[in-house]
Amino acid sequence: MSGLSTKRLMKELADIQSKGTPEGIILLSADSMEEWVFLISVLGEETIYKGETFALRMKFGNRYPIDVPEVTFLANEQYQPPLHPHVYSNGHICASILGNEWSPVLNAVAICITMQSMLASNKKKERPEGNDRYVRTAPSNPKLTRWHYDDDTV
């Protein structure tokens, strides 16, 4: 099944190139069919993230899209993960779409849109409870964390 992810990602890439991405979402790099980086900003005047841009990295395994990709906000000199109650300071994200509600019909842009709307609906800039403890012990791959999705609406 090694061809599964490649064919699908080529198609997603072709769609992005021909039709573009939704506003506020830019494909920064897609050098391989294994790792893409998108830039995400929240539109409008209402948002608490006005003027901020975040980098969302996706790593695709060869079972993508049956398996959910590994998705994190980049945390480096250039980009910082958004201050959000579901985003840890190491860039890990707790969102059901990246866990038990992932569906193979979703795609990279759909993940970006979800992240964008997750940021757009947030009113309070804060880290998740227990951020420090989690970051200290977290595996590098967030998919190995057993997330508990209590309230996705935040």
Partner: peptide, 24 residues
């Protein structure tokens, strides 16, 4: 369209709006 899941209240804000990327 891609998955707007209107019956699932708790996920509503998380779901992406209609997108024409992968027409079925």
């Amino acid at each position: 369209a891609l998955p707007p899941s209107p019956t699932k209240r708790s996920n509503r804000s998380l779901r992406p709006g209609p997108s024409s990327l992968l027409k079925r």
